[in-house]
Amino acid sequence: MAKITKEDVEYVAGLAQLSLDEAARERLVGEMSNILSYMDKLNELDTSGIEPMMHVLDISNVYRDDVVGPSLDRETALMNAPKSDGEYFLVPRILDQE
């Protein structure tokens, strides 16, 4: 049985700012339900007494010292921007912070 409804797909797509056509929505209802079903499969295992894995890497405490290094020059930083004025990255006007 499908664990995911079309509304769920639309909600998640909305959060990810994706617009999906009807066919894609249908397909994702199936695919996402399958993923959740597989999680149920994992839940069949007895994991009591097993430490939860908090991170995929088995290393910790990797830091940099607080030392300033070179930054990009501004021209390079702005090089790939769709739009800039030579100082700032330009984006469509942000309305809801005025």
């Binding site: 990797v62 830091y63 940099r64 010292d65 607080d66 030392v67 300033v68 290094g69 070179p70 930054s71 990009l72 020059d73 501004r74 930083a77 702005l78 100082e87 700032y88 990255f89």
Partner: peptide, 30 residues
């Protein structure tokens, strides 16, 4: 390793990491 200086001209304390370029590796400041 970019500087945190508040008074720098716009977009001069930037690098691929703080610009969010794909494939970069952030490392936490001790």
């Amino acid at each position: 390793a970019c500087s945190t200086n508040f008074h720098a001209p716009p977009n001069t304390n930037v690098c691929p990491i703080c610009l969010g370029m794909p494939g970069v590796l952030p490392v936490l400041n001790r």
